[in-house]
């Protein structure tokens, strides 16, 4: 626990020395690896719906799989895979909207302890007006706490955020 808090502090210090708009791939991917991996429980912010989440490493530590289970809506489970892509950090989100946007990390905020991702492309859109996630944000608001926010987009405008608030299971 103490080591975890120190790791966050060190990584935040390193990245805060750069512009908050820049993303250092090694520092930010290490931040995700060190602070997401494990078992979590929580809820969806706007509804209170309970969720369970597992984050695990794969690909010889080159990728992090996020699996969010929704016990009350099993079919609406969703997953993402975060990974380094040369000098960028990407995430492919396997969405409960049944499409798969790919996003890349575009900014890191040391103040808000968050990493923001913006859309690169999306697969399995059935129609042009279909809703898809076009932004994501991973944040660490406190010790053993994390949140993942998915911002929807359809027909030329944002459709709102779905935020999953998580607390690490000891």
């Amino acid at each position: 626990m103490q080591t975890q808090r120190i790791s966050i502090a060190v990584l935040l210090l390193i990245t805060s020395l750069q512009s908050s708009a820049e993303v250092d791939v090694n520092a930010t991917f290490d931040l995700l690896k060190q602070n997401l991996v494990g078992e979590w429980r929580g809820f969806i912010a706007h509804s209170g719906e309970p969720v369970e989440a597992t984050f695990y490493l794969t690909g010889n530590d080159s990728a992090i799989v996020e699996y969010i289970r929704r016990p009350q809506k099993p079919k609406a489970s969703m997953s993402s895979v975060y990974h380094a892509a040369d000098d960028e950090v990407w995430v492919t989100h396997y969405c409960s909207f049944m499409n798969q946007p790919r996003l890349k990390a575009t900014s890191f905020s040391a103040q808000h302890r968050s990493l923001s991702f913006d859309l690169m492309d999306v697969s399995n859109l059935q129609q042009s007006g279909d809703r898809y996630t076009h932004k994501m944000r991973v944040a660490f608001p406190g010790p053993n706490k994390a949140s993942v926010t998915y911002t929807g987009f359809a027909e030329g405008q944002e459709t709102g955020d779905l935020t999953v608030e998580l607390e690490r299971i000891e």
Partner: peptide, 18 residues
């Protein structure tokens, strides 16, 4: 996952790590 639109395949070692 994802409304039956994605299947995750994990190859795991003896410690059940992917």
């Amino acid at each position: 996952t994802s409304g039956d639109t994605a299947i995750i395949e994990n190859y795991v070692d003896g410690n059940e790590s992917a």
